[in-house]
Write a protein that binds this DNA or RNA. Sequence first.
DNA 1: TTGTGATCATTA
DNA 2: TAATGATCACAA
Length: 224
Amino acid sequence: MLKPAPPTSVSELLQRVETIAGLTLGELAAQYHFKSPDDLLREKGWPGQLLEYVLGASAGSKPVPDFEHIGIELKTLPLSYAGKPLETTYVSVVPLTNLTGLTWQSSSVKKKLNHVLWLPILAERDIPPIDRTIGTGFLWQPDAQQEAQLQRDWEEQIELIALGRVDEISGHLGEVMQIRPKAANSKVLTDAIGPRGGLIKTLPRGFYLKTQFTHTILVNQFAN
DNA sequence: TTGTGATCATTA
DNA sequence: TAATGATCACAA
């Protein structure tokens, strides 16, 4: 099959999502002649890349939503047999310099999470990647409470960074969204504000949604 | 080199 | 066993 064109409307995207619900990742990959690794030790991003391809998301790493025309971000959500998220969800890189004037409203997190297409995958670790089943995808936008939680976590941790205290941040901070390393390995360094106001070198970081938060999104969705 | 797609694997 | 810190492939 040819590479699918980007969906031109939300309803078209949702139709495609319905079509793939219930298939395994391996079945989908075979249909589109997409590679199928035996494990994810070296291709951790494979589920997301396969789904992006099949649903017609813009390829590559651009600072725009996956479905640019309709402003929707695609996120796969790996679930246990019990239906709980197995992993945190990466959102975006954490800015560590040039924070002056940066606000929640103008933040990358706010933009990224404005409109998300969640695609649950039954992805317990004892299931080989190709046998993992795609669930029912659904659109989500943060409600007032969720946005308030995200904003509080963002502001609290960005303030620490602005104060030059990035090295005091670890994954335990944040009620629903944490900051953790996001790099090729622990030797990668980038600029950040230091305790005396100058620049220091530190590990690149990313914002991640905690599993408790994505689980709540899931429960709300399938309760309605 | 940096950002996007994430999961791996050791620690607590 | 959940969560934090570490890691991998690829594109631009």
